[in-house]
């Protein structure tokens, strides 16, 4: 029972962390590309490391950041919760109520 509760708690917390990483990347990419990537300066467009500068700072770099952040997050911050928790007690409760299952729904 406790493990199920802890998985749920961990999963919720981890989900929030993932959304934070997404939001950081969103602000970085959309903010940078939106402000720096929409000016057509013709052949004079700044080039860094072989690509337009806005692509390097606005896409490649945040992509690198997102990849590293995802790896660290997955390896360090996501908990190793057991998945095969049999939930014996809850399952027993469920079996007892199985007869009620026919036609029973939450909003009945």
């Amino acid at each position: 029972m406790e493990t199920t509760g802890s998985l749920l708690r961990h999963a919720r917390r981890e989900g929030i962390g993932m959304l934070v990483i997404w939001a950081v990347c969103f602000l970085w990419v959309v903010g940078y590309c939106g402000t720096q990537g929409y000016h057509n300066e013709g052949a004079a467009t700044a080039i860094r490391w072989g690509m337009p500068a806005w692509v390097l700072w606005g896409v490649f770099l945040p992509w690198g950041f997102a990849t590293v952040a995802s790896c660290i997050y997955a390896l360090v911050l996501i908990a190793d919760d057991p998945l095969d928790d049999p939930l014996e007690e809850a399952a027993a409760t469920d079996r007892r109520s199985e007869t009620l299952r026919q036609g029973e729904s939450d909003d009945a």
Binding site: M18, W22, F60, W63, Y73, L83
Partner: peptide
């Protein structure tokens, strides 16, 4: 197209991590 596809940078983390453990359990 670099900008167009950039959402893929967080796709693995979100699409696997957001519901992965819980749906499996």
């Amino acid at each position: 197209l670099a900008f167009w596809i950039s959402g893929f940078m967080v796709l693995p983390l979100l699409s696997m991590g957001l519901i992965g453990k819980r749906i499996n359990q």
